[in-house]
Design a protein around this nucleic acid. Structure first.
Lengths: 240, 240
DNA sequence: ATCTCAAACGGACCGCGGTCCAGTTTCCTT
DNA sequence: AAGGAAACTGGACCGCGGTCCGTTTGAGAT
């Protein structure tokens, strides 16, 4: 339960759209077990499992874009209301499907081996972070794209918040003089699923170029050495 | 008709979701007149005007987020089908509402006075571009947010394509050695409406800080002088 | 074993975005 | 002026996300 359990706890009566409360910065490694939900009633747990299994199957069959809540409910032999009670909304269900991959990634960041996990210098960790996230995003593009929250919620979505926060921490270390909050948004934006999809699927760019773009971006943003230009200052505008 | 008329032409039978075809890079200044639609039938033009007026009023009254296609149709005394025939979908209608501001902005870029328009050095134009777009985005946040296309379409949306292309051109001039296509996506992402909304409305950052963030970002990305750090190279990782 | 009640269930229900198509209007042709 | 086809219209219709609420069920208390 890395980022405070995100989409797990049982919802009160029903009204609440869930949305985890609690500071996303205060994340801790839970109990160490993979205990998913705190204390779900037996039938609830059973149905949750059924639903996830059914959803996974349907996604594999018809793609995440074609997944409908009703279909999941039907495939799991469960009422529609149950799906919403458990996962809040479509976005929540898709997020739950990504949960496993999400946790693995977070664990790698927090306690994995050095280039990605702690131990390496921050710029290097940034580079590794982007490359790893890029790979993951390409793998899970379907789910990520279909599960993207609405514009208003996008940046408060816990998984994204967590990753962004991580980047901000690294940046703060790597570039102490910068506004690391704002820069972290910029870096995260480059790794946005919709952008990755556009570049690789719609424009046909090879993943390698996108990866190179990340390394270059990190170099520029942290003002470390990249490919490094010629020798003289830029073209037209020295500007002060 | 700056970017090839975008959401104007009459649609064939109906099926097409419209989506302008034609290279967005080949934009030209149309006839110079403000001729909106090429050759709309009299009743169609009348209804189009009615619909836009009604939509504008409803947005002013209840906010863009609460705008429903049915309400617009009703307020304009027109059938629902007509709204969709004219504007394709909700996104199209919102885009039409933004059209005026959009054109003004594009005109300023293409033929306005120097800091923003042609004449100034590219880095300076980039700076001006961001600041101007930032202002505009804050002004029109409601519409921009509500009108944001789905993840798959976001980056092929003509207005955005146009702006991104503009940034790419400036970058190509300012930083010839860089992958200006990829970098332009990064810069545009910083100016994304959803991000602006998050930073200013949800996090409460003052617009001035966001603006400063843009200037800093441009400096880093173009490797021109920004606030400039201490004197020694970054903290931990010189890396090659 | 039973009692009790919060928790969970499920499907009817709602609203909205989007589509369809039979009927109407415009405008071009002759 | 008349005719005809393309363009346009409007509202019934559909599917899906999301909500409501009367009913059922699991599990601690007695």
């Amino acid at each position: 339960m890395l980022y405070a359990g995100f989409m797990s706890a049982a919802l009160p009566p029903f009204p609440q759209p869930q949305e985890n409360v609690g500071p996303p910065e205060l994340l801790q490694l839970g109990t160490g077990t993979d205990a998913d939900e705190p204390c779900l009633r037996a039938d609830a747990a059973r149905n949750r499992a059924r639903l996830l299994e059914a959803a996974e199957r349907l996604v594999a069959e018809h793609g995440a874009g074609a997944l409908t809540m009703e279909a999941v409910a039907a495939a799991a032999c469960v009422g529609k209301g149950t799906v919403f009670r458990r996962f809040g909304d479509r976005t929540g269900l898709l997020a739950a499907l990504l949960d496993h991959s999400e946790r693995k990634f977070q664990a790698a960041l927090l306690s994995g081996p050095p280039p990605l996990g702690p131990g390496a210098p921050p710029v290097e960790r940034l580079r590794a972070f982007g490359c790893a996230l890029l790979r993951r995003s390409i793998d899970e593009l379907d789910l990520l794209l279909a599960g993207e929250p609405s514009a208003e919620r996008r940046h408060t979505f816990p998984p994204r918040r967590f990753l962004r926060h991580h980047v901000a921490l690294l940046l703060r270390e790597a570039v102490p003089d910068a506004d690391s909050e704002l820069l972290s948004h910029t870096l995260m934006a480059y790794l946005d699923a919709a952008l990755i999809h556009h570049l690789t699927q719609q424009c046909g760019l090879p993943a390698e170029r996108v990866r190179a773009g990340w390394l270059d971006l990190v170099a520029r943003v942290t003002r470390t050495d990249g490919p490094v230009p010629a020798a003289d200052t830029p073209a037209t505008a020295p500007s002060a």
